[in-house]
Simulated assay, not measured.
Amino acid sequence: MTLEADRVSRTADGRLILDGVSLGLRPGAVTGLLGPNGSGKSTLLRLLAGVLAPASGVVTLDGDPLHGLHRRDVARRVAVVEQQADTLVELTVADVVRLGRIPHRRAWAPAAPGEEKAVQAALERTGLADRAGQPWRTLSGGERQRVQIARALAQEPRELLLDEPTNHLDIQHQLDLLELVAELPVTCLVALHDLNLAAMYCDHVVLLDRGRLVAQGTPWEVLTEGRIADVYGVRAVVGDPDANGRPHIRVVGIGARR
């Protein structure tokens, strides 16, 4: 068992943001969370992380309601990578990655002997070992996102939630980042805008529209031409599979949302 949402809803300023959404993450798989702007992707991620509470429905971790678990215990299991991160404090790359160890440390307690080993392993996993002493603020956008993933891995989570981590990155850094995510030994849920990136790297995709679950399944099952037209308001051609058997999506014009 892992992280699940059962008919969760959420309102803000009297407006329904999520409407009875259910999903369960598949252990060890990469699940893509898709939908237009305003479809509720970020809200759903925050509910799954325990940052927000649902107005109705329940989020569970290994079958236990998330709201009944200690926040520190959740943080030891579930790590979150936001769209962007910044700090006014002068930190090195290693300092940022060490922040991932906070859930494993008692208040005011010194670092345990094994903590630096976890930090070093996260740096090596993300290809940042040679940047450990470099100031965070000197990094490019793609490098900063990689550091945030290293910080999340230093938590030693079993579930990793990423909120549009490829935003503002060039194509090469988008591919590098998702290659890294796809190879991680954790259960991942990643919110994405680009349908082709989702088709290339996700084992399972979940499609939201206007706060409701439209479909979930493999990229082939979910990303059909009719469904793309309905949800995104564009005409698309879902082409023959690529070398890895994944669909390729080509947008050919603007349509009308139903």
Rank of each mutant, 00 (worst) to 15 (best):
W108D: 15
A109I: 04
P110M: 00
E116G: 13
A118D: 13
A121L: 11
A121H: 04
L123W: 06
R125D: 00
Q134T: 15
Q134N: 04
Q134I: 11
L139P: 11
R144L: 01
V147E: 12
A150F: 06
A150R: 07
R151Y: 08
E156V: 08
P157R: 12
E159D: 11
L161Y: 01
L162C: 10
E164Q: 07
E164L: 05
N167F: 10
N167C: 01
H168S: 13
L169T: 05
L169I: 09
Q172K: 15
H173Y: 01
Q174D: 04
L175H: 14
L175F: 14
D176Y: 08
L177C: 09
L178V: 02
L178D: 06
E179V: 08
V181N: 06
A182F: 06
A182T: 01
L184P: 03
L184W: 02
P185N: 12
C188Y: 00
A191P: 02
L192K: 11
L195G: 08
L195R: 00
L197P: 00
L197S: 01
L197Q: 01
M200N: 01
M200L: 14
Y201M: 11
C202A: 12
C202T: 03
D203S: 05
V206T: 02
D209A: 05
R210E: 15
G211R: 15
R212Q: 11
V214D: 15
Q216G: 11
Q216A: 15
Q216F: 09
T218S: 15
T218R: 12
W220I: 00
W220P: 03
